[in-house]
């Protein structure tokens, strides 16, 4: 506290403003909050129902697979072949996608001034190098 300032109980010159909340605004804010909460809960409900549906389906699929495998000795081999084929399919997809992406990038690079200048510089050098060989 600054001791040079007078102290006392003189009334403050600053008016005090008391804001009284509008009941309608309060209700609206609460309604908005509840609505947001409801949306969130419904979203969670969707996710939960999806999980239940997925797990039920997976259970049925697993049971069918077990039944299938239990009936045949070569079932395990078939499952392995399926698995390997799945991996192969996925790898082919990835490979195709990567090739397409790389090709696009390469095409873009070829259009840049750096590439063009580099080619202009590199071409005579390459010719010289080839001659020496």
């Amino acid at each position: 506290m600054d001791s040079s300032q007078p102290t006392g109980s003189a009334p403050s010159a600053v008016p005090v403003t008391v804001t009284v909340p509008n009941p309608e605004e309060i209700a609206q804010t609460r309604a908005d909050a509840l609505e947001a909460q409801l949306l969130e809960i419904t979203h969670q409900l969707l996710a939960a129902n999806d999980t239940i549906a997925g797990m039920n389906a997976a259970l049925i699929t697993a049971q069918a697979t077990v039944n299938e495998l239990s009936q045949t000795d070569v079932g395990v081999a078939f499952a392995r072949v399926d698995d390997l084929e799945n991996r192969l399919e996925a790898m082919l997809h990835e490979l195709r996608w990567t090739i397409n992406s790389n090709t696009a990038v390469l095409e873009q690079m070829r259009l840049t001034p750096t590439w063009r200048i580099g080619t202009l510089v590199a071409r005579p050098l390459a010719m010289v190098t080839r001659r020496r060989r």
Partner: peptide, 25 residues
């Protein structure tokens, strides 16, 4: 709602396949 809408575990591919199979199931 009953089938859980689209599975958000499948953001890009097969989400409609999965939804269709859920509806049939």
């Amino acid at each position: 709602v009953e089938v859980g809408g689209f599975s958000e575990r499948l953001p890009a591919n097969f989400n409609d396949v999965d939804l269709s199979l859920k509806v049939r199931a």
